[in-house]
Amino acid sequence: MDVFMKGLSKAKEGVVAAAEKTKQGVAEAAGKTKEGVLYVGSKTKEGVVHGVATVAEKTKEQVTNVGGAVVTGVTAVAQKTVEGAGSIAAATGFVKKDQLGKNEEGAPQEGILEDMPVDPDNEAYEMPSEEGYQDYEPEA
């Protein structure tokens, strides 16, 4: 019985440690998101679009440190934060509304985080759909 109880105690310690790591990862992701939003706020009209992409990228980098179902929630929060940063930029006159959601080359930025393969159960990952990809044929 002692062996059984000791095993359960060790398992509990492992769960607590994993929860603490997840909590730490979420806190880091939130900190990076805040950094990115402050970065966007300090940019001029020309830099705002690039700044919004930076927020998304920093958040995406930190999301990889967070495991399990938390990833889905962090990704949703990050996307809403990026959308909010863009709205703030438009409201303050840093950028025109028609410039939001495009990178410096004018290509749409939507789907940055949505296409990231995420499995809350950590069982399997699927690649994003290939609808947006084109076949590449090298020139002879």
Results as ranks from 00 to 15, higher is better:
D2W: 02
V3E: 01
F4G: 00
F4I: 03
M5R: 03
K6Y: 08
K6V: 03
K6G: 01
L8W: 14
S9H: 05
S9P: 00
K10Y: 08
K10T: 10
K10W: 06
A11R: 01
A11K: 00
A11H: 02
K12Q: 01
K12R: 02
E13C: 08
E13W: 09
G14Q: 09
A17N: 09
E20L: 01
E20K: 05
E20F: 15
T22W: 05
K23F: 15
Q24Y: 15
Q24D: 06
A27M: 13
E28R: 07
E28P: 01
A29E: 01
A29R: 07
K32C: 14
K32W: 15
K32R: 06
K32L: 15
K32I: 12
V37P: 01
L38Y: 09
L38S: 02
L38H: 06
Y39F: 14
Y39V: 06
G41L: 05
G41W: 02
S42H: 00
K43P: 00
K45F: 13
G47S: 14
G47F: 10
G47K: 07
G47L: 13
G47A: 15
V48C: 07
G51D: 02
V52M: 02
V55N: 01
A56M: 08
A56K: 06
E57M: 08
K58Q: 05
T59S: 08
T59E: 01
K60R: 12
K60M: 11
E61P: 05
E61Y: 08
E61I: 08
E61S: 06
Q62W: 05
V63D: 03
T64Y: 07
T64A: 08
T64N: 06
N65M: 05
V66W: 13
V66K: 04
V71R: 10
T72G: 12
T72P: 01
G73S: 06
V74H: 02
V74A: 10
T75M: 13
T75F: 12
T75G: 10
V77N: 04
V77I: 04
V77L: 12
V77D: 04
A78Y: 13
A78K: 10
K80F: 14
V82K: 09
E83V: 01
G84S: 13
A85H: 02
A85D: 09
S87P: 00
S87R: 07
I88S: 07
A89T: 11
T92K: 12
T92W: 15
G93N: 07
G93A: 01
G93E: 07
F94P: 08
V95H: 12
K96T: 04
K97C: 11
D98L: 11
L100Q: 06
L100N: 10
L100C: 07
L100D: 14
G101K: 09
K102P: 08
N103I: 03
N103R: 14
E105N: 13
E105V: 09
G106N: 10
A107I: 06
P108Q: 10
Q109E: 11
Q109N: 10
I112K: 10
I112N: 11
L113C: 14
L113I: 12
E114I: 14
E114A: 12
E114G: 12
E114D: 09
E114N: 07
D115N: 11
M116A: 15
P117Q: 11
V118A: 02
V118T: 07
D119C: 06
D119K: 12
P120R: 08
D121K: 12
D121H: 12
D121E: 08
A124H: 10
Y125W: 07
Y125L: 12
Y125R: 04
E126R: 02
P128A: 10
P128D: 06
P128N: 11
P128I: 08
S129H: 10
S129F: 13
E131A: 02
E131S: 08
E131K: 07
G132I: 10
Q134W: 10
Q134I: 14
D135F: 08
D135W: 05
E137I: 11
P138M: 12
E139Y: 00
E139Q: 11
